[in-house]
């Protein structure tokens, strides 16, 4: 057999094999998501139709309409946007200040504080839940937005400080010094020079923070009580608890509830992946 021919055949076979494996993997990863989207456009009676069909005869956006016209469900979304937005804003603000301090100053207790910030990330949420419950009730914050915003920040803040410190460390000190020679304070240097340059890092941290807050379930379940204060993840659970399952509406809510993170992912893929891999990849 001609050796060149056999080699190109081999490459073709290898390519075919890889493509087949990739398709199988895509089916594994993507089919559940496809099924979720497809089900959200079905009527509830067709959810378990036999045989199952990806696109039902009654294809309609009725489930979405039902979610949008239900004030209670719209409120879940508003709550989630409000809480996640506030958490992101406050985390970035406090995180930038903290990161600046760690990057530019040396101070008493720096090492233990650094260890604490690192350690907080390994504390299981369930450990904090009982004292949080008693603290939040004690402060009369139970069932309030502030309860969620404050408690979420403990987890988002560590990450933000560590990331911002790392980012500021990559920026030369001459930048701040130039501002200070002109008579500006370190505060001015931070906000007028460092923060604008650090925007890519800030976007990464912001996306990650928003996602953590948007997805949080355990604290939202415990620290809020009335339906009008619930966020999307807990709202979906409430729908499940009822006796008749409105599967199509739950799927529509799931699609809508995933949309913010999905859009962030599609438009900011780089930042998203940077934030995601930051902790584990070591060159």
């Amino acid at each position: 057999m001609n050796s060149r021919f056999s080699k190109s055949t081999q490459t073709h076979l290898a390519r075919l094999g890889v493509l087949l494996a990739l398709l199988l993997g895509a089916l594994f990863a993507g089919f559940p998501v496809l099924w979720m989207v497809a089900s959200s456009f079905k009527s509830n009676t067709e959810i378990f139709a036999y045989p199952p069909r990806l696109i039902a005869e009654s294809f309609s956006a009725g489930a979405y309409l039902a979610v949008f016209t239900n004030a209670e469900k719209v409120r879940f979304f508003l709550n989630s946007y409000l809480v996640s937005g506030m958490v992101t804003l406050l985390t970035l603000l406090v995180g930038i200040l903290g990161g600046y301090s760690f990057s530019r100053y040396t101070f008493f207790f720096k090492k233990p504080l650094n260890m604490l910030i690192i350690g907080v990330q390994a504390v299981p949420p369930i450990t904090l839940l009982i004292p949080y419950f008693s603290l939040i009730v004690g402060l009369k914050l139970h069932n309030s937005y502030l309860a969620l915003i404050l408690t979420y920040m403990v987890f988002t803040l560590s990450y933000a400080i560590i990331m911002m410190t790392g980012y500021f460390n990559t920026l030369p000190r001459e930048l701040d010094e130039a501002v200070m020679i002109d008579g500006g304070s370190s505060f001015v240097a931070l906000w007028s020079v460092l923060v604008p340059i650090s925007l890519p890092g800030i976007v990464s941290v912001g996306i990650y923070t928003f996602m953590l807050a948007w997805n949080e379930f355990l604290f939202a379940l415990t620290l809020t009580k009335t339906t009008d204060m619930r966020t999307v993840p807990v709202g979906i659970q409430l729908l499940m608890g009822q006796h008749s399952y409105e599967w199509n509406e739950m799927m529509a809510m799931s699609v809508l509830g995933s949309l913010p993170v999905l859009l962030l992912f599609l438009f900011f893929q780089r930042y998203f992946i940077a934030g995601m891999t930051a902790g584990s990849v070591k060159g």
Binding site: F102, S103, R104, T106, K110, K111, N114, I117, I162, M163, T165, G166, Y167, F168, N169, A274, T277, A278, G279, V281, K282, G283
Partner: peptide, 14 residues
Amino acid sequence: PAPQPVFQACFPSE
């Protein structure tokens, strides 16, 4: 190609 950890940083500046 050479991804670096982002996580540190608190010390190198010291």
